[in-house]
Design a protein around this nucleic acid. Structure first.
Lengths: 147, 147
DNA sequence: TCGCATTTGAGAATAATTCCTAAATGGAAA
DNA sequence: TTTCCATTTAGGAATTATTCTCAAATGCGA
């Protein structure tokens, strides 16, 4: 309930109508941490919201991305993935397990941002900087740990 | 002709049969600099090679990516794009014009590589590091210049 | 509460990519 | 240099992912 209100606020602050499909989709993304596809989001929400169509999930996701509330992540195989975490971070993508793992490092993002502040790129307005590290788990059953 | 031989060598060195479709597709990617889609590659080569099917272009591109001879670039709209330039560089992607511009900076890549050398990511073998900067041209008709 | 611009549901349509199978072929070995 | 065969290809069907269409529903400002 608390998260629902938080999500409603996010929508209004972004100048978007807080419609039921938007609240539900954004909420689902905020509580999930596995970078789901549109289809998986649809599956997860339809138990409680059987009337929300897959087409609407896609449409809502587009709106949320354009509003800067979520981001899209492209991976090798299958559908696009979505992430409600908009703090600066990169993605580790494992080709074998198809899992995406967030990956924070303030220092690295400081470096990259600093770089683009200094670099003069004329005639281009930067919207987002994506850093994605593709690879494979050595042991597919074990977790990836970052220290 | 020189490029064709170079491309043949690349294929054999990667342990791949130097088949006609592979030579032609890789050659086309090496000489083009606009990050074409599979369909565009097919269009460009079919004047001289009408028998190479679009399905084969896709199959060949997959093989070349897996062999590390080319890379895939994902963009917001439409098909995946391909790039035969494997030296460390990032991509500027303009949402309006759908153009991708290469973007070199040894210093930045030094920073990122250094970062991953120091950072301990356990149970993960890094295959590639992708840096993509999405944005929009301010004047869609003018070029993006980097200094 | 009303009015209406915006959004949605349902499903058709399109776009992008992969899959299938018989035929072709590159290149290792003789 | 020819033979042989595992690999690759052509052509087209099939599948997957996403977008589109439009009448009906709905959030929200007045």
């Amino acid at each position: 309930m608390e998260i629902t209100n938080q999500v409603k606020n996010q929508l209004s602050e972004a100048g978007l109508k807080a419609t039921h499909p938007r609240i539900v989709v954004l909420r689902e993304l905020v509580v999930s941490n596995d970078h789901p596809t549109a289809e998986r989001i649809h599956e997860n929400i339809k138990i409680d919201n059987p009337s929300i169509s897959l087409g609407s999930v896609y449409r809502v996701l587009d709106v949320l991305v354009d509003a800067g509330l979520i981001q899209r992540v492209s991976v090798r195989s299958g559908s696009k993935r979505y992430d409600a975490n908009m703090s600066p971070h990169g993605h580790l993508y494992c080709l074998q397990t198809n899992k995406i793992q967030d990956f924070y490092d303030e220092e690295l993002y400081e470096l990259i941002n600093e770089f683009f502040r200094k670099k003069r790129i004329r005639n281009f307005k930067i919207n987002e900087i994506k850093l994605q590290v593709n690879g494979e788990r050595i042991d597919p059953d074990a977790e990836i740990t970052i220290t």
